[in-house]
Computed example of a mutant assay.
Amino acid sequence: MKQIVVLTGAGISAESGLKTFRDADGLWEGHDVMEVASPQGFARNPELVLEFYNQRRRQLLKVTPNAGHKALVQLEEKFKVDIITQNVDNLHEQAGSGNVLHLHGELFKVRSTADENHVLTWKKDLVLGDFDENGHQLRPHIVWFGEMVPMLEPAIEIVAQADIVIIIGTSMQVYPAASLVNYAKLGTPIYLIDPKPNVNENDFESLTIIAKTATIGVPSLVMQLIDH
């Protein structure tokens, strides 16, 4: 069975109504992202950081997977499918995808500030005074700027096995898609689904650009691959 590796970014979640991480000016409701997405920011103002993620968690509880997420599930009928996402939502899992690797963590999980391997499922607000059983403050299970990306090595190994790579809603010039795609075997077909692609098909070997949104481009490509 051929293996398809799908790299997804904010573009696919945005169509479900989730705000992308940064506004056009790089701010989130007036905050510099380093204030709300870095260890230093958390040390300076933990209440602000926790509220930033509380708002995102509340928003995630109100949205549902879109046609792009759902179409990827159909691929599993004919292919081995691994999804590597930089999104912290669980829309791929909600849609029914079986193998999802989160590069940047997950909104519906929290972890101990004393032990990064002590991870809990969490769907409500997280506030100061929410401790693990040893009395340590819990924090969002999110990879912040300046922190290691522990799932990067497993992601590289998965991409290296791919027979086909599909990139959705993330630029091929921005981490992680740009770096991960380089680990695919030479000649591996790569499909980029993005309404405003910032690369040309000549920029990468075996690249096909589908200049459409995820909700239109993904179902179309999935039908093509299944019928092939």
Rank of each mutant, 00 (worst) to 15 (best):
S206Q: 15
D132Q: 09
D25F: 14
H141M: 09
S220V: 14
E201M: 00
S220I: 13
R44V: 03
L50F: 05
L192Y: 00
T113Q: 12
G30D: 01
D163G: 02
Q86P: 00
L101W: 06
K19W: 13
P219A: 01
S38A: 10
I83P: 08
H136N: 15
S13Q: 09
D32C: 06
H141A: 14
W122S: 06
V143K: 11
E147N: 02
Q55A: 07
E133V: 08
A95F: 04
G217D: 00
R56P: 04
D194S: 12
Q55S: 07
M1T: 13
A184K: 09
D32S: 11
N66W: 01
I4H: 04
D32P: 10
A177P: 05
I193K: 00
K2P: 12
G187W: 10
A10C: 07
H31I: 03
D194W: 09
V165I: 11
V174C: 11
V181E: 06
K2M: 13
L72T: 00
F204H: 13
F204W: 12
G96D: 13
A211W: 12
V5R: 09
L103C: 04
G11M: 10
V159E: 03
E153K: 12
R44M: 12
K78T: 15
V5S: 06
G129E: 08
P140Y: 00
V222G: 11
R56H: 07
P197Q: 12
T208P: 05
H104N: 03
V49D: 04
R58L: 12
E133N: 14
Q224N: 15
D25T: 12
W28N: 07
A162S: 14
E153T: 13
F131N: 13
Q40W: 15
E29T: 07
A71N: 01
V5Y: 08
L152W: 12
S206L: 14
P189H: 03
S206N: 14
F52K: 08
A37N: 04
E106K: 04
N198T: 15
L225H: 03
G41Q: 05
L72Y: 00
S179C: 09
S38H: 03
Q137E: 11
I210Q: 07
V149S: 00
F21R: 07
R111A: 01
G105T: 01
P39Y: 02
R57A: 04
P39H: 03
G11V: 03
S171K: 00
G30V: 11
H104G: 05
Y53A: 05
L72E: 03
I226L: 14
L50H: 07
D23Y: 13
P176I: 05
I193W: 07
L91Q: 00
K78N: 14
M148T: 00
